[in-house]
Amino acid sequence: MSKTWHGADRANYIWYPKIDYSKCTGCGLCLLSCGNDVFRWSDQKGVPVVANPGSCVMGCTTCAKLCPEDAISFPDDPKNFLKQVIIKEKVFFAVKKELKDRLDKYPDHRVSIEDVEAWKKAEKGDANARRS
């Protein structure tokens, strides 16, 4: 089954990291930080390799942000990229359903803003009380 992004077929979009090997020092942080199994490791050169580009989450640039050498690049302007996908694919039909499913599965995430603000205040109060 092909991957989808809120109903949109992931295979229709080009979004994955490119590694500039003239900058890469082989620290491995990109491989360690990716939660979607995009990278593999080459022992010969001691560098990461983009092996599963289709698994990369559209709009995600976490590996590039963490890369200490700025050796990873993505298509320009992730925000505009996703905006085009959102509009073209009319994802909000799927989003509405996925939101309901998520809240049904995790009912404690169905909240009121006032309650959350009150909890946060109480937590802060607790922390202050412990400190003093």
């Binding site: 295979a11 979009y13 490119k18 090997y21 289709g54």
Partner: peptide, 11 residues
């Protein structure tokens, strides 16, 4: 830099 032209599939 590596370009993979079939991003839809696991290469």
């Amino acid at each position: 830099s590596l370009e993979i032209v079939r991003p839809s599939r696991t290469v």
